[in-house]
């Protein structure tokens, strides 16, 4: 592993994109930042602007309206960018998959690097997914 890649993996800044979710995944993502799980141990922080982001966390089902916004956010982010789909909705569409306004799971719109399934995934599962991503 080169120096560049090492620095990148040691300092992943997260940007949270919530689609039309039921809000439960959002809460579980925020759980990862709390004292009990503390992702800052791995150098991860939540940033406010997508220009600073290294990881795009996408959760919730993506409907027709979200689609263009997700694409725009993805294009605004500086590359290299890691995209993580969180929750059953993010990975496959989950319970919204047959809805009229559903615009396809995340990986039909932008390339996804990691899937963390669950409805909602436990914070432990999210951490496990991130650790797997770091060791990839």
């Amino acid at each position: 592993m080169g120096f560049k890649e090492f620095c990148f993996k040691k300092s992943l800044w997260l940007f949270h994109f919530a689609g039309a979710s039921c809000n439960n995944c959002d809460i579980e993502i925020l759980d990862c930042l709390t004292p009990r799980y503390d992702v800052e141990r791995f150098g991860m922080v939540l940033v406010g602007s997508v220009r600073h982001a290294d990881v795009l966390l996408v959760n919730g089902s993506i409907n027709q309206r979200d689609k263009s916004r997700l694409l725009e956010i993805y294009e605004q982010a500086p590359k290299p960018l890691v995209v993580v789909a969180i929750g059953a909705c993010g990975c496959t569409g989950g319970i919204f998959a047959e809805g009229d306004t559903f615009a396809g799971p995340v990986d039909k719109i932008i390339p996804v690097d990691a899937y963390i399934p669950g409805c909602p995934p436990k914070p432990e599962a999210i951490l496990a997914g991130i650790v797997k991503l770091l060791n990839k």
């Binding site: 120096f3 560049k4 150098g43 500086p78």
Partner: peptide, 24 residues
């Protein structure tokens, strides 16, 4: 009551921004 980042975190942040990330 968290554990906090590792000692060299500011350096990782700096070199990541400097060497890896794209400038928009």
């Amino acid at each position: 009551f968290r554990k906090g980042p590792p000692l060299f975190q500011p350096f990782y942040d700096f070199f990541k921004l400097l060497l890896v990330k794209e400038t928009i």
